[in-house]
């Protein structure tokens, strides 16, 4: 009996490791920017290249930065959800149009609706690198003081919006 105890314990530990490891999503990379001040940027505004939009415009209230592109399938999938969130009007959504074609992007917003308070046009992807973006769509939640509270990777859903975004805003408001 006794001689079986050690292998059984070893096996149980292995099973534990596999149970955790095999259920992790290897494509999910946690952002080191959570809890830090958002990277500053100022970019031309999509559709109005002579105007700029930047991190300064996002201060003073809870905002969301949504990274999107017309070549990104998940962005099309989440677009109706963003429109609904914009209709509710609680939190302004800023867009970061990532490595895209300005004409295609403008046309996309005309056809599918424009949920964005303003969209920054990041043609070269430099601002996206500062934000640690690696796959659209990505959505950041930013506090009034510019702190990044959360990042969601993959298309936005109403459930994620309620449970991850609105819940964090409520918690931050209650805590301060």
């Amino acid at each position: 009996m006794n001689r079986f105890i050690v292998p059984i314990i070893g096996f149980a530990i292995l099973v534990g490791f596999f149970a955790i490891g095999l259920n992790l999503d290897p494509t999910f990379v946690p952002s080191p920017l959570i809890g830090k001040t958002m990277p500053t940027f100022s970019l031309p505004r999509l559709g109005e290249p002579d105007q700029t939009v930047g991190s300064d415009d996002m201060l003073g209230r809870f905002t969301v930065l949504n990274v999107w592109a017309t070549w990104c399938g998940g962005c099309r999938q989440e677009h109706p959800v963003l429109n609904r969130i914009a209709e509710q009007g609680d939190v302004p959504i800023y867009g970061l149009n990532w490595k895209d074609d300005a004409a295609l992007a403008t046309d996309w917003l005309r056809r599918l609706g424009n949920p964005y308070t303003a969209t920054a046009f990041d043609e070269e992807g430099r601002v996206a690198i500062d934000w640690g973006v690696y796959g659209a769509p990505e959505t950041f939640l930013i506090a009034p003081d510019g702190t990044i509270l959360y990042r969601h990777i993959s298309p936005m859903t109403m459930d994620v919006w309620k449970n991850e975004f609105l819940a964090r805003i409520a918690a931050a408001r209650g805590g301060s």
Partner: peptide
């Protein structure tokens, strides 16, 4: 790089 994307 790690400031933006983490040690990964």
């Amino acid at each position: 790089l790690t400031d933006r994307y983490g040690d990964f």
